[in-house]
């Protein structure tokens, strides 16, 4: 039944020389080559394993995608708002309402004086007549002012402030200085809403940071739990592999790749979801953007950030898998 004559030919040849007492050793280059080929093998095998159970793999990937999309979308929303308010920063204005009965000539002189102030980048004088004309242009207001016995609108000097004057202290000083001119009845600076938005943005950024950290932990836990189940399913295989001399790193490898694929899969779906959201919001924003003079363009994630997201998600998946695998595989010893 057994081919006893083959012993010497098959196994004897290499044994007879050194009795084979040392572990099989091969050259360093060979080792690296086989290590690389094992990585390739394990990488493709772990993908095939994921495809073999499409429903459960997809469920995990979708959970990861949602967990990745939430903080990413929030960050994009915040950067969009920050961009919008950044544009607003460029043209913060202060309006000086003049006393009634100031002649145009006097008003223009004040305008010229004010334009020489520091941190004033531009001035424009709107005479009561011009104000009345633009008021009349507004829908529903036409004729109202004409029906009054006297034009109630004062002359206004609009100052455009340079960016450096935007700190509240400087702005308040500027306002005081303007109020010092006796022809100026009142001064109004539209900075307060900007400050509020900045405060809200700051808060939103903190919330987003906390959310990012929490959901990153979530991603690791989801991957870790899935990997743990996978390890439990392959318990027998792991024990037998360890019996024939596998290191923990060898046994861990397919699970690490699985975590990596989960992370990358989740990130890809998340990127698709983000594009979808952007597409859906763009049409909704078009009407809003028309109302604001067509200046609002929604920015997405961009190529660099998309790549960063992909790499981070892959890392989180790998890390989650590593945490689960190193813990559970060490415990799985042949008994």
């Amino acid at each position: 039944m057994f081919k006893s004559t083959k012993v010497n030919r098959r196994t004897g040849e290499s044994r007879s020389s050194g009795q084979g007492i040392s572990a099989p050793h091969h050259s360093f280059a060979n080792r690296i080559r086989s290590w690389r080929s094992h990585h390739r093998l394990v990488a493709s095998q772990s993908i095939r394993r994921l495809i073999a159970t499409p429903v459960s793999s997809m469920m995990t990937i979708l959970v990861l995608a949602v967990a990745i999309t939430l903080p990413a979308a929030l960050n994009i929303a915040i950067s969009n708002v920050a961009q919008l308010t950044g544009q607003a920063n460029d043209n913060v204005q202060m309006s000086l309402y003049l006393q009634n009965d100031i002649s145009d000539k006097k008003a223009r002189k004040i305008t010229a004086d004010v334009s020489r102030w520091d941190s004033v980048s531009g001035t424009r004088y709107i005479s009561p007549q011009e104000a009345k004309a633009s008021f009349n242009d507004m829908e529903g207001f036409a004729g109202i002012i004409d029906s009054l016995p006297k034009n109630p609108l004062p002359g206004v000097i609009v100052l455009t402030l340079s960016e450096h004057s935007l700190s509240s202290e400087k702005a308040i000083n500027l306002k005081k200085k303007a109020m010092g001119i006796k022809e100026v009845a009142s001064a109004k600076i539209d900075l307060e809403w900007l400050q509020k938005i900045h405060a809200i943005l700051g808060l939103a950024q903190q919330v987003s940071a906390v959310l990012t950290v929490l959901l990153s932990i979530g991603v690791m836990l989801v991957v870790g739990n899935t990997i743990k189940l996978s390890i439990d399913n392959r318990r027998e295989e792991i024990i037998v592999t360890k019996l024939v001399g596998a290191t923990n790193a060898f046994v861990r490898r397919p699970f690490l790749y699985m975590g990596l694929w989960f992370g990358i899969g989740g990130a890809l779906i998340a990127l698709a979801l983000i594009s979808l959201c952007k597409y859906a919001l763009t049409s909704a924003l078009e009407s809003l953007s028309l109302a604001y003079g067509g200046e609002i363009a929604l920015s997405g994630l961009g190529l660099t950030n998309s790549l960063v997201l992909l790499v981070l998600a892959a890392l989180l998946g790998w890390l989650g898998a590593w945490l689960a695998a190193s813990q559970h595989i060490r415990a799985l010893e042949p008994r």
């Binding site: 083959k6 098959r10 080929s37 024939v244 596998a246």
Partner: peptide, 25 residues
């Protein structure tokens, strides 16, 4: 399995596995 675990080259693996299987017929 023991050859993969020990990092043998795939060409050697085929040769050795067939040799061992041949041995036990």
């Amino acid at each position: 399995l023991p050859l993969i675990v020990a990092g043998y080259h795939s060409r050697d693996i085929g040769r050795r596995v067939r040799g061992a299987l041949d041995k036990v017929n």
